[in-house]
Amino acid sequence: MTTERVRWGILGAGNIARTFVGDLVAQGLEVAAVASRDARRAAEFAAELSIPTSYGSYEALVADPGVDVIYIATPQAFHAEQALLAIDGGKPVLVEKSFTNDAPEAERVVAAARAKGVFAMEAMWTRFLPTADAIGDVLERGSIGELVSVSSSHFQNLDVAPTSRHGNPELGGGVMADLGVYGVSFASRYLGEPTSMLVDGEASELGVDLSASVLLRHGAGRTSATLTRMDAPGSNRAAVVGSDGWIDIDSVFYASTSFTVYDGGRGQRELLRFDKPQHVGRGMQFQALEVERCLSAGELESPRMPLDESIAIMRTLDQVRARIAAARSSSVSR
């Protein structure tokens, strides 16, 4: 790095970028520039959030010597193209989840980053929250025994019209890319890549997955379940089950939240209550702090969100979506 202080560039000027920048600034991190294909939108975004520089092209952001690392905050359909642009320019990248549109794209991004010797990471921000750290501590202590199962539900009432980001296949819309990825990544973190799956779900006439019920086997008798849909609200809770107890994770399970650890004995007594942590912002700054730590240490990927795992997660999403699409095609042809 050319300076001790890492200077962030923001590629994309939408809502997720706004949240990310707000959290970084609240944490005292530096945001140096923002880019959008619409120069006016970039300028308005920069003025709103007091970012010194704005650009009307992504190429200009990548070429800026005053930017040390780039956060890609566009829809999934464009992640690979833009990550490759940044990597080719020698810029480290934090790529919003889902990492790419599909697994082959993820493999190309990872191969490019490794060939170029450039840092890359998927922005699965929930992994870096204090809640996630506390759950990890419970598991490391063996408080619930050997892990056997993970479950989660993620429901939101979103606009799924064909013209919306969530309902438009050209923008990478779909419940697995936007919501289900949290549950799949959650299971992957604790149980690894699945060995088999059972899937049910619904897809729109355009082939966009709208809901999914996903049961995964992870080997050694361990399983995970992910329930998700984007046309209805829900409790959005999760559980991690072990041979000697379990962890109930309160709503919203993928954000900064509380949880309770229970003994699995006959009394099923409460062992630990972890209250919702207090910190500035939503919590997206913690992934940025991990990126900055990796850059300072000269690491090309984070051990907390390995690139090979991001590829494996994309493989799982691809398989789930393919099965939902096949089921819809079969039902339509009857």
Rank of each mutant, 00 (worst) to 15 (best):
R269Y: 14
A73K: 01
V150L: 10
L215W: 10
A297S: 12
S329A: 15
S310T: 14
T163R: 08
G192D: 09
T3C: 06
A113L: 05
D159V: 09
V67S: 06
A86M: 11
Q287C: 10
I16A: 01
A238W: 00
N15H: 12
A32L: 04
S331D: 12
T53D: 05
S329K: 13
R229E: 15
A77E: 07
A77F: 12
H166K: 07
V175P: 01
A297Y: 07
V118M: 08
M176C: 14
E44L: 15
D248W: 06
R321E: 15
V252E: 01
L215K: 05
D178P: 01
Q319T: 13
N168K: 05
D275F: 08
D209M: 14
R114G: 09
V261C: 10
S256D: 12
G66C: 03
T3A: 15
Y254S: 14
A77D: 07
P306A: 10
T228W: 02
V160Y: 04
S302L: 05
A120R: 01
A60F: 03
L272A: 07
A111W: 06
N236E: 04
V31D: 02
D178K: 03
L85E: 08
A225T: 08
F20W: 10
R304C: 00
S296G: 12
S196G: 12
R315V: 10
A161H: 10
A42T: 08
